[in-house]
Every structure is written in C-alpha cells, then in structure tokens.
Design a protein around this nucleic acid. Structure first.
Lengths: 251, 251
DNA sequence: CTTCCCATTTTCGTATAGGATTTCGCTGAT
DNA sequence: ATCAGCGAAATCCTATACGAAAATGGGAAG
C-alpha cells in the first residue's frame, strides 16, 4: 500500500537522487542489470518513474565507483565481471590493507567496538536459520558489514574509504551469481556451488568464514594485534580459494 | 551568438560533462572555490555558460571523489582542508601502499617503464627554470605524475585506483595555498614557506624531493626492490615533515 | 532578548525540445 | 555473395522553463 508514497505525500527526508543511486546499485548487485549490459537512460527513467536528472546523477556517481562504465556519446553500461587479473589485484590489495586494519583495530579496541563486533556475529548466526537462497544473501551482507566494521575500527578513515571503494563484496557476489547461473544452464563442472557452500559458508562442520570471523573478532577484542593480523591474512587467502573457481570460468 | 561557438565548431571528441568536471576540479585545486565554500549550481552554470545538467553530473562525481560534500536539500560545498587527523590518516595510508608499489614496480621494471621514469624526471628538471610561482605549480604536478606513474608501474590496478582516489596532491596543494595566504595576511610564523621551498623543492643544496625521486627511479630501473621500498618510505616521511607545519595552523 | 511566523531564496526534480552522433538496415555495384 | 555508401532511427547530450518543497532571513509579538 505504501509503495510509491515517495512521489506524492511524504515530506522527503532524503533526496531522490540518493534513493535512485541505491536502487541502481542494487540492480547491478543482483544481475537485474547484467555485467556488461548497456544501460539506457530513457528506459531506466521510465521504469523507475523518474526523470533523467536523478538517473544521470546516479550513473555519474556509479561511474566514479567503478561500477558503471561510460563511453562518450555511446552511453553507460555495467562493468564486466572481474577478470582473473582484476581478481588477483583486488585480493592483493585486500591482503595489503585488511590485515593491517585488523592489527590496528586490535590495538585500539574498546568496549564499544567489542559490542559492535559481537552484535555483527550474532546477526550472522541468526541468519543461518534462513533457507539456502536467503542465507547466501544474508551471509554476503554480513561479510561486507564485518569487513567494513573492521576497516572502521582501524581508526583510519582513508583506509576505510579505500577499502569500501573496492566494492569487493558486490564484485564477488556478481561473480558467484554468474557461476551459479552458468552452472544451472550447463549442468557441468557442478561442484563449485556445493564446495562454496560446504567449505566456506554453510556446512555443519565447516562454516569456515564464520569461524574465522569469530577468531578475528576475539583477537581484536583481546587486543592481540599480531594474531588479528595473521588470522585476517589467513581468512582472506581462504576467500581467494573459495571464489577463484568462479573467476576464469568466465570469458 | 558568438559566445558559445565552442558548441558548433569542434567535432567534440569528448563530452562537455567531462570537460566541466576538470574545470571545477581545477577551481577547487587553486582555491578559486575555497575550502568549505558553498557551490551554487545556478551561478556556476551561468559562469561557465553551460546548463545545469553537466554541472550536476560533475558535482556528483566530485562528491564520490571526496572533493565536494553534498548536504541533502542544502546543496554542494567544497570539502574543508585536511584536519590533522585526516592528514595523518592520509600519510599512514601512503606509507602502507606506496613503498609496496615502488617495490613491485622495481620487480617488474622494463625498458618501457624506465623510459617513462626518465622522461618524467627530465620534465621536473626543466621546470626548475620557471619563476617561483610557476615552479611550485609545475613541481606539484610533477610530483603527482611521478607518484601516479609508480602506482601504475606496480601493475596493480586496484592499488593505483586507491592511490589516485586519495587525491593527495590536490589536498596537499590546497593546504600549501592556505598556509601561504594565511601568512601573507598575518606576516607571522613566516618561516614555513621559506623552509618548504628551501628544503623540499627549490634550494640549490636541497631539492630534496627531486633528489629522492631520482633515487627512487634509479632503484626501480635497476630492479632493486628493497631499495626502492625503503627510499619511497623515506621520501614520504620527508613529505610529512615538509607539509605538517601547514596543517594545524588551520582551524 | 527570545521565539514564532511569513515571505523570499535556493535547491531539487520534472518535462520537453532539439542538436549531435552513433548504429543499423537498405540499396546497389563489383 | 560481399562490401561500400547512404539514410533513417535510436540514443546521447545539452538547454530551458517551470513547479514543489525546504531552507533562510527578517521582522513582529511576547
């Protein structure tokens, strides 16, 4: 009933542009706008029932974010999936700054930070009760929030910005989605999804990612900087192994 | 009728939006739009003789860059000068990734890269013949190009993006400009500008920055990775010392 | 002096028109 | 059959006018 009250009644508290930015970003996230797909401004404006202005503004921002590519006089299109090299570059960068962030977070850890870490771990645990499809989304979002939280707790705003600027979780989720779709169509080399769930997120014995998150959080809470550093390093390398089958399968 | 013939004559190869983006960025760079100053879209459109559309698009991109702040329903304004904390955060980040970049650049150095390094050093040397005011600008631009070049030569696109995303040279130049203006007005604590020129860029004996650039370039060309790493580290620390008097003087 | 209210200003979004450029399909010639 | 060249449609890019909503500023009342 409340679906488009935005347009008429409510005294807008945020700006339409920002809302549209989020909507388009979400469309990219879940392949409603597929990687590489051309984005027609008129069509998008029509679909979202807004004018060109907020669309163009959003696309400009998304281009700065590296999520949209702009070709002069040819229009906008969603960026392609990560290539092997881009994937490697991304994780090389993460290995450079995230263990450092965890180390710093541990050094200056306080009760307030500890509480936020515990709350986030609890959310992750709760989401394990969801069904498979919702669960993956929920865990991806948890993963994003967890890593961003640690970059915040590093205390260094430039590092946090740089990390968020990679939009790594969006790229990785797109990679996962593509692998999944690819597999459903081809019914071949079908172990990736299973492996991913079993080892990285879901299985009873595994839940590797969540387990590592707990270890990292504890190390930070107990101000064990070098341990936080090394587990984060290990965790990211595990993430590389989990996702890398999804790369290279493309293109 | 003759005022906007730009629109007619040239078979535009780039787009007005992009051009305007550069113009506004330059205005921020040299304090034509002062730190913290409110930016009126109508006024800017009138001044640049273009419509709202490219202005809004540029401001949206500049906001993503962290150079413009947007307050919903209040409009855009230029970001303030770096605070002490922001300054420290920025350089902590640079110390994290730039020595690493130099190391990587050295490891995979080739003739092509060597030639680009030599060309950039030559440009810097040539600019020493300019008068003082032009020289500072030229050397700032050289410094930006040199550091960006090395981040490119690291071979890691994510790292390069993250580095450029800091816009550190723009921020540092604004800091310098503010200190200079402040000093001209107050005629007090007047040694900063002199010190800066003498030790960091200009003096016959000094030219510390350029000298360090040469050393870094040589280390990279000779594929001495650990040396490239350590000199870059030293160089950035020298930069901290050179600029830090300009911080904290503000606000 | 403080608080409230109203008018002006500014921002934000819409709608529309038209020029510029690319894309694509068609025709025709080799 | 292939390819060059032409033209029309689609799309992008910019300009402009207008209206709604919020912020701002100033003055009157308490």
């Amino acid at each position: 009933m409340t679906d488009n009250r935005r347009l008429k009644r409510t005294p807008r508290q945020s700006v339409l542009s920002d809302e549209i930015y989020g909507v388009i970003k979400a469309k990219i996230f879940d392949h409603e706008i597929a990687p590489g797909q051309h984005v027609n401004i008129d069509a998008l404006a029509l679909q979202l029932n807004v004018s060109h202005t907020p669309i163009r503004e959003s696309l400009a921002r998304l281009e700065s974010d590296g999520l949209i590519r702009k070709e002069p006089l040819k229009g906008y299109s969603a960026t392609n999936l990560l290539t092997m090299k881009e994937f490697n570059d991304l994780f090389e960068f993460r290995l450079l700054i995230e263990p450092w962030s965890a180390q710093r977070a541990a050094r200056s850890s306080d009760d307030f930070g500890a509480e936020k870490l515990r709350a986030e771990l609890k959310r992750a645990h709760d989401s394990l009760r969801l069904n498979a499809s919702e669960q993956l989304l929920a865990l991806t979002e948890h993963d994003a929030r967890f890593h961003i939280l640690i970059s915040e707790m590093s205390g260094n705003e430039t590092v946090r910005r740089a990390f968020e600027g990679t939009h790594c979780h969006l790229h990785l989720y797109r990679l996962f989605l593509a692998a999944k779709n690819n597999q459903l169509a081809a019914e071949t080399r079908s172990t990736f999804i299973q492996d991913f769930f079993d080892h990285y997120y879901q299985s009873e014995s595994g839940q590797l990612a969540l387990q590592q998150h707990e270890e990292i959080a504890h190390a930070i809470i107990e101000q064990n900087a070098s341990l936080a550093h090394s587990i984060m390093h290990t965790h990211i390398e595990a993430s590389i192994r989990a996702y890398s089958p999804a790369v290279g399968a493309e293109r």
